[in-house]
Amino acid sequence: MNHLFLTAWTDILESLRARWFAVYTFVFGGILVLLFALGLTESRVMGFTGLSRLMLTYLQLSMAILPVFVLVTTVRSLSGDRESGVFEYLLSLPVSLSAWYWGKMLGRFVMVYTPVLLAMGGAMLWGGLTGVELPWRIFLYYSALLMVLTWCFLGIGMLVSSVARSVDVAQGTAFVIWLGLLLFLDLILLGVMVQQYASPNLVIGIALANPLQVFRTAGMMLFDPQLVLLGPSAYVILDHFGNLGFMVYALAYPLLLGTLMAWIGYQWFRRGDLP
């Protein structure tokens, strides 16, 4: 088997045995079950009901949980392996560093994204069985959004794991990054900056650079195309990108950012000491 896929497959099997994966799957499956149990498909927000409403809530919850989960488990696992001597042994075998690094990322991506996708797919299946209208457009776009969000934070996690020399430093850094991105959402610091008359270009620049904010705005766009919820900054976004343009940007930017972060991480990993 190609070394990249062999490494990815090994990582997948490793994740299946790991406790973090059981917890992670339970959390994402559990959220959906909980949303069904709470009767969210019956409620209505801005005219949205049924599975669309459920997926919207699921997306918002995923935005809060997925990035921190991906970051912390990735850096814990990779930095932990480095610290405990797993790298010393496995990297003494004739596997190329690129196959090792990208194989790890691929395997982890499959393991992180699959439960999220299965949960969404499960909701659609349940909707199909109970005769609820199936929001295919929302399902496909939200699945793609969650995919690029996963990739983006996985890339950041790989970079942090490559740079940090210990689990503690890696975990702390990952948490600070997540917290920083969370603080610069429109609900928190960006709102304060607007209130303090900060330059609109700066505020919007930060909003467009923050993958969490991009994800949140794109998530809103499907049910609020005019971005009324976002306030005046919506004008800038819609003037510059247009509705479709921003939806494409929301997929392309996190994908590129995650790839760039992972690539920098790979260069760091390749050029530094491995164990």
Binding site: R17, V86, Y89
Partner: peptide, 12 residues
């Protein structure tokens, strides 16, 4: 062929 001093804590 390499044999390390401390066996790595591999879960596989």
């Amino acid at each position: 062929g390499f044999v390390p001093q401390l066996p790595p804590p591999l879960k596989m």
